[in-house]
């Protein structure tokens, strides 16, 4: 009966994952390998294709006037600089949306909403960037990443070429993702791993750690069983997945550093209020 309960939990989290996240790993890998009936993604590999593809990027928060400013005869470098900033803002918009998706997913983890509300906030605040990095991995390969719900493929070289510190944000995530993708987790495994990350009892400032650890322990058992059944030939997969949590903490530290640098150097940039809440006093 206990194993049955753990299987029910795995199924529940997988269903919630499918319900809350618009682009699954299965779909992303199909797009990346060209095995989908949908149109191939629009490829952004330089400033010209970014300018052309900008209309496809999910940017519903940008006011129209701002978009029109590009045609006002600015010199080339200013145009480019504005294009980069606009692109960065649309990334922020999508990230804020993803934060709300992750929050809904967290709320669906059995027992999560019964935790102290302040602890729920702390778990989301400290786990969010880690979760988003894991969710980004299936969209990436060594050459680039899908964005805008899989409609656009942006090359790694192009992202790297953006002016500092924009060009530095993604490179460590690519390095991580290429290795993480080698574990070949599927969407059902990912759902469990995300729940494990969210339920980390060692986040700074938690008021009541015990109930969080109890919940995490249960999801860990469920993940261990699920990985054994889902990947019978992959040795030590459970341990290998858990080891990735150490890399995630380093990635977050780097991310915070770059964002800090951006705050200092990019006077025109204002961070989305929800992302500000998450980044503020984070380590």
């Amino acid at each position: 009966p206990e194993a049955a309960d753990l299987r029910v939990l795995a199924k529940h989290l997988y269903e919630s994952y499918l319900k809350n996240f618009p682009l699954t790993k299965a779909k992303a890998r199909a797009i990346l390998s060209g095995k989908t009936s949908d149109n191939a993604p629009f490829v952004i590999h330089d400033m010209k294709s970014l300018a052309e593809g900008e209309q496809f990027i999910n940017c519903r928060q940008l006011p129209r006037q701002e978009q029109r400013r590009t045609s006002m005869g600015l010199i080339q470098s200013e145009l480019q600089s504005e294009l980069e900033l606009r692109f960065f803002r649309s990334c922020q918009s999508r990230s804020a949306e993803a934060v709300s998706e992750v929050t809904e997913f967290a709320k669906s983890i059995p027992g999560f909403v019964n935790l102290d509300l302040n602890d729920q906030v702390t778990l989301l605040k400290y786990g969010m960037i880690e979760v988003l990095i894991i969710m980004m991995s299936p969209l990436m390969n060594k050459d680039g990443t899908l964005i805008s719900y899989g409609q656009i493929f942006m090359t790694r070289e192009f992202i790297k070429s953006l002016r500092k510190p924009f060009g530095e944000i993604m490179e460590p995530k690519f390095e991580f993702s290429v290795k993480f993708n080698m574990l070949e987790l599927d969407d059902s495994d990912m759902a469990l791993f995300l729940a494990v990350i969210i339920l980390s009892g060692d986040r700074p400032g938690l008021l009541n750690v015990k109930p969080i650890e109890v919940l995490q322990e249960n999801v860990l058992h469920s993940m261990e069983l699920h990985l054994k059944m889902n990947h019978p030939d992959s040795l030590q997969l459970f341990a290998k997945v858990l080891q990735k949590m150490t890399d995630l903490r380093q990635l977050v530290a780097h991310h915070v550093q770059v964002m800090q640098l951006m705050k200092e150097t990019e006077i025109d940039m204002c961070l989305h209020p929800l992302l500000q809440e998450i980044m503020k006093d984070l380590y």
Partner: peptide, 20 residues
């Protein structure tokens, strides 16, 4: 609580807000 206003709101709303 004020510091994490939107997160609080997201946690307490039954559906994701559309104002993101």
């Amino acid at each position: 609580k004020e510091k994490h206003k939107i997160l609080h709101r997201l946690l307490q709303n039954s559906t994701s807000p559309v104002d993101l």
